[in-house]
């Protein structure tokens, strides 16, 4: 019996949107609508790849992806199905705007429990929009499972997970037994694969499991009470732009000027 792996994903405002295009909406608390499209978050892509590699190796029997979001996130769930995740779950949180990490983690932990039989939860280290870096860790606490953070690769060896992770000073290999939560960071070997054309077509017809917070035993009041904090306002930081360009075609001359200026500015 292989593992049942649940990957927690999030669809985010495209992180590649240039700073110059970033704007804040009239509420002052969130980005303006329409400044960029939405994409499957960068670390969730790495997380999904780690799970799919376990499946390729025969270590995982089933990969489920879960997100807590509005209907628009079906797009990212379908992307996950197109790279051959087995099941996609949307906990539709429409009407509960601006969920914070504590709320999201409670919803996702309950969804993992409702799925049943999950051995390994894989989350990105942080979502590429609000950069909270909390949800995977809070899900671990809520489930009462240990958590291995900043994982880059996972293998199963005789019931033991061997996890390559970013340690404080370099890579580490950690052994752990399921049930377990891991948070994933990027690495050259967990860049998300591209879907095959036939899988892309098939993913459009696959069913998406839809739950509401109420299906997970959370009414609006209970959900509201879980919030850990509140955003008062967003603002755009000021950036200095006073670059002094050192021009010229002769590398030796330019290099000499650069070193001289660095010394004059007392930087070297």
């Amino acid at each position: 019996m292989g593992l049942h792996v649940a990957v927690l994903i999030k669809q985010v405002l495209d992180p590649e949107v240039p700073a110059a295009r970033f704007q804040i909406d009239a509420s002052g608390k969130r980005p303006a609508a329409g400044i960029a499209g939405e994409v499957l978050g960068p670390y969730e892509r790495n997380a999904l790849e780690v799970a799919l590699q376990l499946k390729d190796a025969g270590a995982a029997e089933k990969v489920s992806v879960i997100t807590a979001d509005g209907q628009e996130a079906v797009e990212s769930l379908r992307k996950a199905l197109a790279v051959r995740a087995d099941q996609a779950v949307l906990v539709d949180t429409s009407g509960h705007d601006d969920l914070d990490p504590a709320q999201t983690a409670e919803i996702l932990a309950r969804a993992v429990e409702k799925l049943g039989g999950v051995d390994l939860v894989v989350a990105g280290r942080q979502a590429g929009d609000w950069d909270h870096g909390q949800v995977g860790y809070l899900v671990a606490e809520r489930l009462g499972w240990p958590c291995v953070s900043l994982v880059q690769r996972a293998e199963l060896d005789g019931g033991v997970l061997r996890l390559t992770r970013q340690g404080p000073d370099g890579r580490e290999v950690v052994e752990a037994r399921p049930p377990l939560v891991v948070t994933v960071t990027n690495d050259e070997r967990n860049v998300l694969r591209l879907p095959r054309v036939q899988d892309l077509m098939a993913s459009r017809r696959q069913p998406i499991t839809q739950w509401s917070p109420a299906d997970l035993g959370l009414d609006a009041a209970a959900l509201a009470d879980l919030a850990g904090g509140e955003v008062l306002r967003l603002r755009i930081p000021e950036r200095e732009s006073q670059c002094e360009f050192i021009s010229g075609d002769d590398p030796a001359e330019v290099a000499a000027t650069l070193v001289r200026r660095l010394k004059e500015l007392k930087l070297l």
Partner: peptide, 18 residues
């Protein structure tokens, strides 16, 4: 009131914790 960078540093958020 805590301030933290969000959206990859494109914005700063002022936040109160409950």
């Amino acid at each position: 009131i805590w301030t933290r960078p969000v959206f990859g540093g494109k914005a700063l958020a002022d936040v109160v914790l409950r």
